[in-house]
Structures are given as C-alpha cells and as structure tokens.
Design a protein around this nucleic acid. Sequence first.
DNA 1: TGGGGTCCT
DNA 2: AGGACCC
Length: 543
Amino acid sequence: MAAMHPRTIVHIDLDCFYAQVEMVADPKLKDKPLGIQQKNIIVTCNYPARARGVHKLMYINKVPKVCPDLIIRDGSNLKRYREASEKILDHLRGWTPEVERLGMDEFFLDVTHMVADEQEKMEKKLDFVGHVYRGETLTLIETQTRNESHVPSCTAKVHHCRCGCYQRLMTGSHIAQRIRTSLYQTLGYTASAGISVGKMIAKLSGELKKPNQQTTMLPAYIDGFLAPLRVRKIPGCGYSTSKKLASLGIETVTQLRNLSKQKLIKAVGAQIGGRLHDLAFGLDTSHVVATVREKQMSEEDSFKSCTAIDDVALRILSILRPLLERVRMRFQKHGDLPSTLRLTIRDRLSHQKTEQSKINTSGGAYFTTRTSRQTTIPLGFFHPENKKQEGYCVDHLMKLFFKMIPRKNQRFHLTLINVAVARFQAFGGAGKLGKQHGIDSFFIQSPTKTAPSSEDNIPTTRMAHLEHVKHTTDATRISQTARKRKFKTPPSFFRPRPPVQCTSGERAPQPERRQPAEQPVEPEPVTAEEIDALYITAARVTP
DNA sequence: TGGGGTCCT
DNA sequence: AGGACCC
C-alpha cells in the first residue's frame, strides 16, 4: 500500500538573516542589540535587540525610545547578504540537490531520499530530536502503552498515522539537526527548521520555536494545528486574498474549510482558491523545485522626490552600474546574458486619482502602483566586451521612461526607480550548441521582437554584432543627432560626469540624530533646449 | 515600510 | 504590463 505521507520536507529559516550576516562578519556585535537599516527603517534586528522591543520594519525614529544603544548597520547594499545566501544554498546542496530557496534566508529541502537511505542502513532512530508539536501528548501516549491507568482519556484519541511517516519524520528530525549543526560549524549561521510531510506545514512548523531550534509536525496533529489559524497565516493567502475572504466572513482556517471549493474559487480565482481549499485541510502536494539561478536581476532605489529628467538619468545611472556589475559576474560564472531590459517607476502624480479610488473601493491601505516598460535587447549587448553598454543602457532606459511620461511638459514625481534585466540565455558556449547551430545563431533576433532600430541590420557574426553594438550604443551618436537638430548642448546625461554619489546612500543617520532630510542628488540645471533634445531623441528612437 | 525576488492573469 | 505573493 502506498504511503499516505511519503515525503519528508525540511524548511530551514536563517535567524534574522541580515543581522546574522553582520554578526558573523563581526563577532563583537554578537551579544549587543543590532539593527539593519534601509532608508528610514530597521528592516531586521538580532534577538538582543528584539528583547529590547525593536522589531522588523520599525521606523528608525521609534528606535531611541525603546533602545537608544541599538547598534545600526547600513543594509542598503545587499551584496554581502546575497553572497552569504549563495554560500548557504551551496552548503545545503551538499546535503541534497533538492533545495528550493525562498527569498534570501529560507530554504525547502526534500529529504525523502536521505531518509530512505538512512532507514535502509538500519539506522532507525528511537526518538525525535528537537521539538515535536504537542510533544507532551506524545510522551503521554508512550506512557499509555506502558501503564494505561495514568493517562487522561483525551490523549487516547490521538491516532498516529501508520503509513510509516512517523518513523520517517523521526529520521527527518535527525537529518534536520545535522544540517543545522553543519551549517553552524562550517559557515557560522544558525537557523530554525520545520520538519513535516509537506512544504507549507514544514514552514509553519518551523515558526513555532524560533531562534536556532526545530519543530517536527506529525500528520496526526496537522488538522488541529491549522484549525484556529487566521487564513492570512497560510502561505499564498496574502493581503488581498485575506481581505476578499474577510468580506465573506472568513477569517480562520476552520471557516475556510466550511466554504465550498466552488465558492472559494469564485471569490479568489481557480489557482489560489483550489490551493487554499486543499491547504486548509493540510493537503499540500507542491514539490520542492530545485533553485537554479535567478530568472531576473534588478536594482532599485526609493526616495522622496525626483521630478527632473536630469535627475532621472542620474539615478538610473547609479542604479545601473551595480546591476551591470552583477550581470558581468554572473556571465563569468554561468556564461549567460539577459535579453530583456526593464524600467519600473513609482510616480505619485500619475497615480493620485487611483490612490483615492483604491482607498474607497478596498477600504484599506494601498500601495502606490508601479509602472513598467521593457524592451528586448540582442543578447550580446551585455557582453563585457561591449564597452559602451553603460551609455547604451541609459539611452534605452530613458527611452523607456519617455514611454511612460510621454508628453513634453508632463510633470512627474517619482519615488522609486527600478532597473531589471531578465530572460537570461546562454551566450558564447558554442560547444554546447547543437550541430546545426553555430555561434551565429546567438544573434538571430527573437521573432516576436524587433531590433532596437529598424534600420539596423541584424548582425550575424559575433564580431559584426559587437560592432553593431558599438555603433548603436555610442552616446556620441545621440549627441551628434542632437547637434544636427541644432541643439548646441547634448542632453546632459550623455556628458561625462563625476562619479555618481549614491544619493540613496542617504545613508544611515544614527538613531540619536534627527532624521536629516533626504539629500537630493544635486541635479545639474537642465535647460529647456536639453529637455527638447531629450524628447526629440526619444521620439526619434522610439518606434 | 526596503530592496529584492516568483508566478499568475 | 500589472497584480499578488514571498522574504
């Protein structure tokens, strides 16, 4: 007979991840209250800080009252956190290839095979390690087998599953413990873990005991554990879905169980509805999908105000540089390049009305929506050999910006800029191509998209392609165009500039100091002619 | 509320 | 292209 709970899933959650990265790098911090700041917020903090009343996503100006001696580290540069996350991912892959990452600090491991291997070796465990949900009940049941008279009658009603999952989870708890120990001994990181027969329940179990502990959830207890939870606790049931459910009077899992699947699907859609219905009963067949590489990479910056085109270009450039650096690093390591470039903005002015209506319709908070435009770029544009890629990208991104702010004299008030690259494809790995393909095939355009400029020929060789890149990228081409149009001054963002000051660096004011107003990028004055030139350039290049 | 990321519609 | 979700 097939086992009802055949899998063993471990969910690993690094404790207060950003703070821990800082503490591992600088052990002096370990026992002191530590917070990680991004903009005006403590995004995370270590446990000593939590004991003092600091919590995640706390406004920095609340800090002095609860913890004036909080040590603050700037967390706006994610590089070291990314690197730490990669190391951890690699380490976990040493235990099993079936590792799925969620965010930077959470991992699902399907340890089913490890459990089977261990059981085959006759290494059956006789007890769990770490916490077991309602473990005290468990003890009572064991007592019961020895001496029935001492056991309260209610515990006798817990029937453990006989499919073998009990033994497997026991073994799983030991595997989880070993993994956590090795993580600490090799990399210095502590983590909490949940062990159960499905992803969702493993994740929820791990939250039960939190820093540096683990909890196993046996199937017999899943229903009872889930029943009183708010639906919002279920992974996948977020802000919006839980509001929709609340409007139907559904706030807990028990209430959710009593809603027919059909009604649920009608309320929140087939995908979420179907899954939510199953999850309410603890039914979770979703698989651990081994994480490969990111499918997109982005950098963003948020700020109080950006209202000038020149400022937009400057900020785009300061975002772009670290992004391109990441693209280069990835290319070195994996040999792939992106072929999509995307610009996303948050513009207060274009969403003012929407905000009002959203408040009225949904009755709650809203998030100022983002707007994006993306373009397809020939794969080789991001090749490190393309020295002009920075200018080229700014050119393209400004073009995308003008698609969103199309009219001259249209005012805007940006509060966020995000630049993303996506659609990574192997580049230059001729040896890996099928025989019918040569390296030339890398430059054949996707049929669904056109080249950036229709007048350009599609290059068919690598060198020709790079030449093409050079020509179409060259900022001077734009400048010359601007001159031809009789604008003496080329758009200012094409001129060489001093290194961009990372204004979003707007770096970590210490808590005792008053929040200085955000230091704006000092925009170079932009003339009417320059703006004209920008719009003309954009119009010329934009189809 | 940050600065990421994923998948679905 | 946007929405909703995750951290």
